[in-house]
Design a protein around this nucleic acid. Structure first.
Lengths: 215, 215
DNA sequence: ACGAAACTTTGCACAGCCTGCAAGATCGCC
DNA sequence: GGCGATCTTGCAGGCTGTGCAAAGTTTCGT
C-alpha cells in the first residue's frame, strides 16, 4: 500500500476537478437564472459543462446542491471561527464576530454569491435548501453555544440563538441580493444584528426609556 | 348553468374525502416514524390507506407535504389573527399574540402535532419543508408587518421580524416535541419570545448594566 | 326511481431525479 | 513504458410526480 497523498492543489487532475465543479455550478446558476428551476434538467446542465449527467451526480448529490453551493464548508469555517472568540464575549456578539469573517469570504466571490442569492430568491423551493445545508452545522453550532454559555442540555437558549441568528443572516443576504449589492453585506448583517440585540423594537420607536436621545 | 354550491361539510362525498386525507396523513406519519423517511414509499403509504398511489398525489403534491400537514392553512389563519391585533401594539408583541391563538389550535390536536414534530426532528430533510410551507405566507406576513409599522418597502425590518419569529416558533415547537410535551407549547413559545424581546442575552446575565448584584 | 351532471378514483404512460455497478479512460508516479 | 489510483461514462433500475382518459361514485333534478 503506497498511501501517497495526492497534491491537493497543484496536480493536473485536481485542477480538472476544480474546473469541472465550478463549470457545473456556474452553468447551473446561469441556466436556472434564465429559465427557472423546473425548466432546467440535470442533463442540460451537464451538457453545458461538457460532462455526462452521471458525472454531475459525482460532484453534487442533487440538482439543488449545485445551486446553493458548499454551505457545509462555509458553516464549518464559521464554527471554527466561533470557537476562537474569547468566552467572555456574550454569545450573540460572538456569533456576530464570527459571522463577520464569513461575510468577508462572500464578498470575495461577490458576483457569484449575488447571482446565487438572486436565483434562490426567484426560486423559493431552494430557500429551504439553504436551511437544510446548514442544519447539520447548526447542531454543531448549538453545541458550541451551549458550552460557551454553560447551560444544561434541556435549555432552549442555544438552539434558539443559532436558528434565530441563522434566519437573520439569511434575511440580510437575501436583502443584499434584492438590492443587487448596493449596500455592503457587512452593513446589512450589522444592522440586522443591531435590531436583534435591541429586542426587535418597531423602527421609529428607538427607546423603551426615552430619557436620552438616540445616537 | 346549475352553479350549485356543494355542501362543504355535511355531504357524504366530503366526509369520504376528509377521511381519506387524514388516513393518508396519519399512515404516512406512522410509517415514517417507524421506518424513516427514505424507507417508506408513496406506494406503501397509499396501500396503508387503501387507495392507489395515484390518489395519494391527488391529495398531496409530494410525499413530504403529507407529513408536514397543511401549514398554509395555519399560516393563513395566523395572518388573519395578526391583522386583528390593534395597530398600537408593537409588531413583535402583535405576532406573539396572534401566535398564541395558533398555539391553542395545535394543542387541540396535541398528539398529532407531537408525532409530526417528532418525525420532522428525526428526518431533518423535512425541516426545510416547514419553512417552505410558510414561505408564501411569510411574504403575506411581511406585508402586514410593513403596513403596521409603516416603513418603506426597502426597509429590512418586516422581513427580518417575520423570519426571526418564524424561526423562534419552530425552535419552540421542536423543543416541545423533544420533551414529549412535558411543558406546554404556550410556555415554550412565551419563553422564546421573552428571550427575543430581551435581545437574546446570555442566560445567567440578566442585566446589561451590572450595577446590581446578579441573582 | 331514473338519468344526467359533477366529481373522484384508478391505471397507464412518461419525464425527471438519483443510485449502484462495471467497463473504459485518464492521471500520477516509478 | 507501465502499474495503480482515480475519474468518467453508460446502463439498468427504483422512486417521485404529472397528464390523460376510462371507470366508478355521489349529487341533484325530474
Amino acid at each position: 500500500m503506497t498511501l501517497d497523498r495526492p497534491p491537493a492543489d497543484g496536480g493536473l487532475r485536481d485542477r480538472k476537478k476544480r474546473r469541472t465543479r465550478t463549470a457545473l455550478a456556474t452553468a447551473a446558476l446561469r441556466l436556472v437564472a434564465e429559465h427557472g428551476l423546473d425548466q432546467v434538467t440535470v442533463e442540460e446542465i451537464s451538457a453545458a459543462a461538457d460532462v455526462s449527467s452521471r458525472t454531475f451526480f459525482n460532484y453534487f448529490p442533487s440538482k439543488d446542491d449545485a445551486l446553493v453551493g458548499d454551505q457545509a464548508a462555509l458553516n464549518a469555517r464559521f464554527v471554527a471561527r466561533l470557537a476562537e472568540v474569547p468566552p467572555e464575549v456574550p454569545a450573540l456578539a460572538a456569533i456576530r464576530a464570527a459571522l463577520g469573517e464569513v461575510v468577508e469570504e462572500l464578498q470575495e466571490d461577490r458576483e457569484l454569491w449575488l447571482l446565487r442569492m438572486d436565483v434562490v430568491m426567484r426560486n423559493p423551493a431552494l430557500l429551504p435548501r439553504l436551511v437544510a445545508a446548514g442544519a447539520e452545522a447548526e447542531r454543531a453550532m448549538t453545541d458550541v453555544v451551549a458550552a460557551r454559555v454553560g447551560v444544561p442540555a434541556d435549555h432552549g437558549f442555544p438552539a434558539l440563538l443559532t436558528t434565530v441568528t441563522g434566519a437573520a443572516f439569511r434575511a440580510a443576504a437575501l436583502r443584499w441580493a434584492a438590492t443587487a449589492g448596493a449596500r455592503s453585506l457587512a452593513d446589512l448583517v450589522d444592522q440586522a444584528f443591531d435590531t436583534l440585540a435591541a429586542g426587535l423594537p418597531d423602527p421609529g420607536t428607538p427607546e423603551p426609556h426615552p430619557s436620552r436621545t438616540p445616537s
